[in-house]
């Protein structure tokens, strides 16, 4: 991180300069992060780095704190009463928990998609995708620009051909899989640097799941993706690196292949061979 020159803030341009060379670029760094609900410590001193243009999967038995860790990465954790966080999370070297950093600003750069599809029921398909753009105040794109962004986001999620002729219809009319891809499109439309996926296929059928997985695989081309999943096959299919969590602690993180074939920790081995969890 220190080797990189500081960069000037770039206005919200529609096209971006080509990515910097070097795939090992660190994007999101978590340092001794602990997360609490009241006095219960759900995440215990986790340090982990998420690299740019990689998909990192977080696996572990239910209740291991993987979703809570994910929710700390864009400051969603603190929206629950009594929830609080210790430690730091840095996006491109800046602590998102530092004083003066606006949580809302953080969430616009670190998008999130949830377990169940959450289209806004009162908005049309188009307005759902554009929802994140409507709040930009004076930076709000024009109608034509918005239409382009919506189309692009829908194309990236392979929804365009399915919904282009009914953009004004309610998003509720879509199937569960389409709704989830719509939510991903909605998150992409604000062009986040990082996308967090919290068990995005948990409520989907196998075919929809496959579509979402293909999409996740594609997304690594230009962003950092963190996916929480209880499904080890899914982690193996979509991720570059996999982290294993147990009882709030990070047990190990390694290249996905390595972790599933030659884990270095016996607890990881026990989990992936199905001896517990």
């Amino acid at each position: 991180m220190a080797t990189e020159p500081p960069r000037a803030p770039v206005p919200t341009a529609v096209t971006a300069p080509p990515p910097a060379a070097g795939a090992e670029r660190r994007r999101l760094e978590v340092a001794s992060l602990s997360a609490y609900y009241g006095s219960a410590e759900i995440v215990r001193g986790v340090s982990i780095t998420f690299r740019d243009r990689e998909v990192t999967a977080i696996i572990g038995p239910s209740g291991c704190g993987k979703s809570t860790l994910l929710r700390c990465l864009n400051r969603m954790h603190e929206t629950v009463p009594t929830a609080h966080v210790a430690g730091s999370v840095s996006l491109d070297g800046r602590d998102i928990y530092a004083k003066g950093v606006n949580a809302i600003e953080v969430r616009r750069h670190i998008g999130m998609v949830f377990q169940r599809p959450t289209p806004f029921p009162t908005m049309s398909i188009r307005d759902n995708v554009a929802a994140g753009l409507q709040i930009l105040g004076r930076d709000k794109p024009s109608r034509a620009e918005t239409d382009h962004i919506v189309e692009d986001a829908l194309r990236r999620t392979a929804l365009w051909d399915e919904v282009s002729n009914r953009l004004k219809d309610s998003a509720i009319g879509l199937s569960g899989g389409q709704q989830q891809r719509l939510c991903i499109a909605r998150a992409l439309a604000t062009r986040p640097a990082v996308l967090l996926l919290d068990e995005p296929t948990a409520s989907l059928d196998p075919i929809s799941t496959q579509k979402v997985e293909e999409l996740v695989y594609e997304l690594r081309r230009d962003m950092t993706v963190v996916i929480v999943t209880h499904n080890m096959q899914q982690a193996a299919r979509v991720s570059d690196r996999t982290a294993f969590m147990l009882m709030g602690e990070l047990v190990e993180i390694a290249a996905t292949n390595t972790l599933f074939t030659t884990p270095s920790d016996s607890r990881t081995e026990a989990y992936i061979t199905g001896r517990f969890g």
């Binding site: 998008g111 959450t118 806004f120 929802a131 604000t190």
Partner: peptide
């Protein structure tokens, strides 16, 4: 609650989440 969270995760402020998404729904 998931709808409220989805709006917050998009960068909606609390008041906007409450009025534009929750109240509207």
């Amino acid at each position: 609650v998931s709808l409220r969270e989805a709006a917050l995760a998009l960068g909606y402020s609390r008041w906007r989440t409450s009025l534009v998404v929750v109240l509207r729904t």
